[in-house]
Amino acid sequence: MKTETIISLENVTKRFPVGEGEFTALDHINLTFTKGEFSGLVGPSGSGKTTLLNIIGSLDVPTEGKATVIGHDIASLSHKASAKLRNHHIGFIFQVFNLLPVYTVFENVEFPLLLQNKTASERKKAVMEALDWIGLADYAKKKPNKLSGGEGQRVAIARAMVKRPEILIADEPTANLDAANAHSILKMMKKLNRELGTTFIFSTHDEKVMTYLERIIHLRDGKVELDERIKNKNQAS
């Protein structure tokens, strides 16, 4: 199971125009991610972490090379097809939880399923299950402004996971959380990774996150500096 390649990056290069020149954000990246990995991209600002996440998340396309995500060549997808890929197969978690403020917790988590045209009963079942995973089933009717930072991020995880995506992309998910909440969130993600087989890819500077990762990819100046598989104390959490 763990050997099934879910993401394949071959000589992926991304350049951005800067003035009359170009800035190379990713420089011939070659990486593969297998199903169920719990991995992270680390590196200083400008190293290419976010650009790489954008390509994996079908939010951007490479300038050169080939990025294949769940069998889809990212560069060949139309806007609509990449939106569909995100909606069905890729979940996102941001630094801040980015919940839609006028909707309840239930409705926020329900939203990706609305886009999939699931029936009301299917949606209700899936949302309550997702809220159960994060331990916030009782918060279904609350508005985001009544949630703490940790609770908000847990709801964001439920929203990302409710559609049971193959890949979950998390950009600095613990950056705005205290240590206790950060550990709680990471343990929950690890549990979901193990139980649902979802591939997690983090972008992080946070040492706490790194203690949970099975694989850390160090990026510098758009290149893979080091790709290490590690045994961490929190991996079994």
Binding site: L59, H79, A83, K84, R86, N87, F92, N98, L100, L115
Partner: peptide, 10 residues
């Protein structure tokens, strides 16, 4: 932005 990220098309 959130809706685009969640997979809603433009």
């Amino acid at each position: 932005g959130i809706r685009l990220a969640l997979g809603e098309s433009k």
